[in-house]
Structures are given as C-alpha cells and as structure tokens.
Write a protein that binds this DNA or RNA. Sequence first.
RNA 1: GCCGGAGUGGCGGAAUCGGUAGACGCAGGGGACUUAAAAUCCCCUUCCCGCAGGGGAGUCCGGGUUCGAGUCCCGGCUCCGGCACCA
Length: 865
Amino acid sequence: MSNVYDPREIEPRWQAHWLEHRTFAVPNPGRPGFDPSRPKYYVLDMFPYPSGAGLHVGHPIGYIGSDIVARRKRMEGCNVLHPMGWDAFGLPAEQYAIQTGKHPKETTAANVANFRRQLRLIGLSYDWDREVNTSDPAYYRWTQWIFTRLYDQGLVYQADVPVWWCEELKTVLANEEVINGRSERGNYPCVRRPLKQWMFRITAYADRLADDLDLLDWPESVKAMQREWIGRSRGADIVFPLAGVPGESLTVFTTRPDTLFGATFMVVAPEHPLLRRIATSDRRAEVNAYVAAASSKSDLERTDLAKEKTGVFTGGHALNPLLDPADPRARIPVFVADYVLISYGTGAIMAVPGHDERDFEFAKKYGLPVVEVVRPPAGTPGLADGVCFTGDGTAVNSGPIDGLPTPEAKAKTIRLLEERRAGSPKTQYRLRDWLFSRQRYWGEPFPLLHLEDGTVVRVPDDRLPVELPEMKDFTPSADGSPPLARARQWLSTTDPATGRPARRDTDTMPGWAGSCWYWLRFMDPWSDEAPFAPDAERYWGPVDLYIGGVTHAVLHLLYARFWHKVLHDLGVVSTPEPFQRLFNQGLLVAPAYMDGTDRLVPADEVDEVAGKSFRRSTGQEVRQIVATMSKSLRNVVNPDDVIAENGADAFRLYEMFMAPLADQRSWSSRGISGCRRFLDRVFRLLVEPDGSDPVRPELGQGAPARPLEGPTLELERALNRMLKRVDESFVEFNFNTAIAAMMTFVNDASERPGSLTRSQAERFVQALSPFAPHIAEELWQRLGHAESIARAEWPKADPAYLEDETFELVVQVLGKVRGKVTAPRGAGEGDLKSLARGAVEKWLEGKQVVKAIVVPGRLVNFVVR
RNA sequence: GCCGGAGUGGCGGAAUCGGUAGACGCAGGGGACUUAAAAUCCCCUUCCCGCAGGGGAGUCCGGGUUCGAGUCCCGGCUCCGGCACCA
C-alpha cells in the first residue's frame, strides 16, 4: 500500500468494490433488506441518448451534481433511488447506423457499453440493477402498453398532416431535421406534403398542463416557456354574417371583444375555406393571384418580421352583429392577408387598427379608417397622439358599452353577443396536437392492426410487445413509405380476437416515446406483469429532484407530464405530476482557436502565454473564441483523458468548483490542477507519506482522545464552520462554495501540524465523500472502518463551535472603515463603543460624535460633525 | 418587440437580513529546499499616489433612499437564453 495519493490505483479498486458489493442498490418495498422506517428520496438524471461520440466533459456536470445529492441523502439515512439508463431509440441512432453501415441494434449496444464504462469511471453511485434501455423489447412492451391506454381513452387519432418531404433524399424528414425549409443533411429543399399521421390529443390536457405548473418547484424560466408554448388566451368567438352571402358567416377569435365597435375591416388567411365565397367576381383574379403568391412562400418568408404586411381587398363585406344591418357602420370590408395564420384561432380576425399594432400597420398602409374605442388612462399616449393603444382603458364610441372599463366591457360584449347567438366565450391555445408517428425504422412499432374493412383495432395486452422486425435494409423508401412497409412477413397477421386477416401499422413512434415514462420503470424495472408494481410507484413517486439540461424545457417535459397525467387519471400512477423539483445545470463552454485564415486549430495544439494564444508547432498567434464543445470546433475534451491524468475525484471536484451548478462555465485545461493539489494535501493531512502506517499515528484507531484546546479548538471551530457552509451549498447546489470551504479547512489544518484529531479527520472525510468518493472511501478504510462510507453518518455542524470567543470589530467613521480592534464575543454596546473609540481616535479629533451605530458582533459606525 | 436571467480583479468565481468587497482556486511575480528539475513550502498580486507609515478611487452607467448600498428603489446600457404577425 503506497502512502502517496495515487488515484490510478485507488479509484479502479473502489469502483470494483462498489459494483461487487452492490453498494448503491436499493431494494423496493417488501423486498429483503428494505427498511420502511427510512424516508425515500428519488434523484433522477435526464438519461442520455448513447451517441457514437461518447461523453465529453460537459455531459457529466448534471450527473455529478445529482450524484453528490444522492450520496449525501444516503448518508442522511434515506432510501435513495438513483438510477441510470439509455434513451436508445430515435432518429440520431438511426442516422448514425446508416452512416456507419451497421444495424442500429449493434451500434446502440456498442455505444451503451461505452457510455456505461465512462459513467462508471466517474464514480457515479447509480443502482445498476435498475438500468433500462428504451429499445429493449422488455421495456418497449410497456411503452406500447401505455400507448394502448391512451388509445382507449380516445386520445389518439389519425389525421392528414403536412410533413416535410425531401425530393432529393426521397424521404420524409422530421421537423428537427429541417432547418429553414432545407434538409439538415445535404441542404436540399424540402416541401410540406400531407400524409396520414397518428396524433395525440395533448390539447385536451392544455389547461391542466398550464395550471399544474403552479404545484411545481421548477425554475421560473422553464415554467414560463411551458406556459408560452401552451399559449392560453381567453376571449370570445364572434360570428359576423356575410353581406350578400345568405346563410354564411365568418367566425373570428378575439381576446378583445370590447373593441368590436372599432373593427373597421376583417382579415382572413389565404387558406381560409370561405375565401372563395367571400371574394366578389370583380376581385377574384386579384385574390387568386395573392393566394397563389402566399402559398409559394416558405414558412420563413411568411413569418419574417422585417417584411411589410401585404393583402388585397376581397370585395366582400361582413356585418357587425351588434349593429343594425341597415346601419352603414355595420358593413365591414373583408381583406385577405398572410399576416393572419390559418393554423391559429379560426384563421380570420376582426381588425381593430386603433388598438392592435398589426392592424394599425395594415390600416396605415392601405388607408383604412382608424376608430378609437378605448380611451387610455390619463397620461398614457393613445390615438390622439398618433399611436396605437393596446392596453386597458375605458370604452368609447361603442354604444351599449360606452364608459365601461375594459374588463367589464369585455364581459358585457360577450353577454350581448350570446343573447343574439352571435358569439360565445372561448379559450384558445397555441399548443397543437402532438404528431406522434414517424416513417422510420428505429422506434417502437405501433401496437395497432388495420383490418380489411378499414377499421383499426389495438393489439391485446397479452400479445405485447409488437417487436420490431429484423431488417437488413432499414433505410427510408424512395417513395416516402416507411421501411416497415417492406417487412412483408411481419406485416401480415391476424386479428387475435376474430382470426380475420390484418395488417400491422408501419409507422414507428418518435424518439420521445421512451422518455415519456422511464422514471416510472426505474421504480420497478423487473416487473413483467405491469409497467411497474403499484406499491413501488406509491413508495418512490414522485421524482424528488430531476436534473438535466434546459434544452428539454418544453418538449420532453411537456410530453412526459402529459403521459403522466393520463396515467394518473387512469389510476396507474398516484401523483398528478412526475417531477416535483426540476433543476437545470449550466452549459459548458470551452475555448476554440482559429488561425489567421479562420481555420480551426485543435485546442490541444495551442499554448497560452501572457494572455495570448500561440500554435505550438508554428509559433503563430491564433484567435480564441468560446463555444460549446463540438467535434467541428476541435475543442472537445474527453473525460477519459482528464481522469487518466488527474483522477475521477479531481475531475468531479473541478466540474463542481468552476461555478454554481446552474451557471454556465468555461473549461480550462489548467484549472483542474488546483483540485488535484487539494486532494494531494488532503491525503497528506491524514497519511504520512514516508511512513508505513495507514494513517498518521494520532489519527489511528485507539489513539488517545485529546482535549479541545489551543489549535485543536481552533480546528474544531474551522471544521464546524466548514460543515455549515457545505450544508448550505445544497440549497441551490452551489457546490463551488462547499469545495472552497473544504479547501479553507484543509489549509487551516495544514497550518497546525499535529493538531487535528481523529474525530475531526473522520467528520472531514465524511463531508468530502459525496464530492470525492474514492479518496474518501480510501481514507475511511485507512481510519479503520470496515463498512463503506456510503452509509456513514452525515456530519452536522455543532452551533456551539461556530464562533470564536473574540471577533474583529470593524470601526467606521461616516461609513468608512478607519480601524479594527479585537473584541470579546459577548461585549455590550457600551464596551464596544469605547473599544471602537480608542481604535479611531485620530479620526474623531476635533469632531463631534453625533451618533454611534452599533451592530453587535460586527461593527461600530461613528457619525460625526 | 415580449418573457426569463446576468453584468464584481488578468481569469473562474465569493460576499447570511443592507454592515470589512475580492473568500477559494487558476494564472503571474518573488523566495526557501535541491547539484539541477519536478514536487512541496513561504510571501506578494483590484487600480492610482507615496521610499514608507499611509491616503484616494473602486462591484456596467446615471440618479435616489440610508449612519452605511455589490445587495434596496427609479431611469438607462450591454450580454446570454427563450418566444416571435398567435389576433
């Protein structure tokens, strides 16, 4: 046994120990070894998609943070569920397989093995008995089972939906693969083409998905993004009869029914179904030309803000439903313009240029009348000042609602409309139903059968899973039909209920499916009778802490909440929400370098001298940029290399020491040395490098207890202050301050050789162990403990030792620090004042002290004249 | 434009309730030990003036509240992230 700190020897040994002894395995309720008296804690990482590139040093930041929490909770006596698995289905895996010419099953298995190896290298305390893989039939059997539950609830339907089609690649592409109307790979033009797709009725849950955010301890920014995505607006539908088109009317959605009398024109989207009826014959040619031009524009061009609004008059008129049709003010001209979107509301609006910016802009351009119907509060500029006023005010020029404040004007307008059956209250959402099918191979097959009469039945539970067929060629078909359509044998089957011939569905689920319930499978991954045992779910749910990147702020977290809520309604899960607390770890950036011709220079070929960067081989100065790690920027740092050089513990510490867990941080290849030096000092503090004893003699088992006095008492105080700061760091996961506090303690202890006691050494190692578990296990064992430190006690700060009996009294004159003096802790105000006066005599000479402010334990401030 | 967040030394960052700004670490400078190097240990390191004791300024900018402001209030600037013609 070497007495010099050597992580290359220590770390693999302890990693093997943990695996062999299943140190972090936690039993489920009712299983041997389960202790119901302990509280539960479920800390979950967003499980990774196992890419071919492996992990870079940015990926483990969240994993290390969650691991520190898990390890500490274990020491506090909790049953801790801390699992890991693989989000292995989906497009990237399929693309990678196509690229490498290997089957996705093979590449996924190899990538998973590499990820597992890398995660174990970091010393993360996962319960590997619970590992799951979404592409494993034993897992996706239950993904399909949950799908059938949603299907039975009527939450699944088929619809013709435009999808991206790339003529050049002869394939359908997912939204994520299309950027600005061109394919991500190859940059070929793509077009929208209607195709029959499976849809989830997520809009049925829109209200609860928005409202229940209030129950959650999530970052406000993520809640805001979800609310915005759901985009709930309360208002009214208003029905405008069409003049000259008997029996037809135009329905619009508005959030401002109170501005109805200010509607001086109407606008319909170019795709509006009634447009042909509305347009008069003399205008038809112009309208058709406009519609044709709009349809040839890409989505990007349509939504480009910089562009000016365009539109043409249809010749048709609509009638204000609250005015007499004979009243000339009731007739409202109808325009067609592409600033109105067919996909939102009713695809038509009443335009109120006085109180809507977009309508105002359009009206000014085409010389349409602008009428004020909302008077702004005094002092707020409005139409009288030539600007459009969109806020709340008082209704004017509006007949029956004149004089009412905006909220009441809205309510009364809706009442009047309802009386005339010309409108009703309406809540509108920006959220769309969820397009759930992909014409791809590497995903869960739909557990659905198409019968010859055109009906669709679901596969019964006892026939699940519907396994993905083995296919040698899994590339998309040239005509856009899914690869599974070519699996002839697999395709034709019979309906188990009737024995009639049936055809399997050939679409697969998107990559999101497996991640919509994996936290539930982790609770009981062994069950083959249900997705999980109900008692396991009742015990472990909900996830107490979910750590992951903010990139999943909307889609994954919204989809996961949706499935969870449906399962909750069905009584399958006991909680209304899956993730009680969400925490987003910060991004990692790293310097990248370019030479004079903007060519990228690999980061490891660059030296930094006096703030400038030079290419080592040529001595040429290079320019530094800072960006997220990527292969293309040649600035990727692999944790394998960092760990090989400095050890996993130093790596873990450095990742946490760079910044609070939530903040963006910048990787510096040199910075880690401070953390490595700290661990060297820790080891030397407890172990005599030239000796042969496992620890220094005064720290060994049976070493005589020593009184808390002199430097030992000082260390006791230093230790307790450290423990307090470490504890506080767990509130917002600013572990950088915890590590700084431990460094300070080790500095204090190193300055007082021989003063550290065994008890102090033990408590220090316990506090260190969640952060640097390998060295902690090693030192714990050397201190004579047979059991792993993983379940040792978590050390608590003793308030009796947080303060010295004296403190440094700061003395200010007029708020400026003019002196300092040592004062006894319990001194009264009078004593402090006279002590303070003595320290700043020369500043008080010839001055009159008007007032003295005393903050006990801190400072005295003299106010003088 | 709207929503969310942030601006502190050469760098990453710290600072409880409004109470010593710059903890801890990196980088840099000086020294000890060494034949030498590495490692280790000690000292210095916000800026300006001064040989020094010491003094002045200073937390994005401008105001304000207060005995006292990095922290609170008002106005502005910059940066990062999200949404973006959603009626």
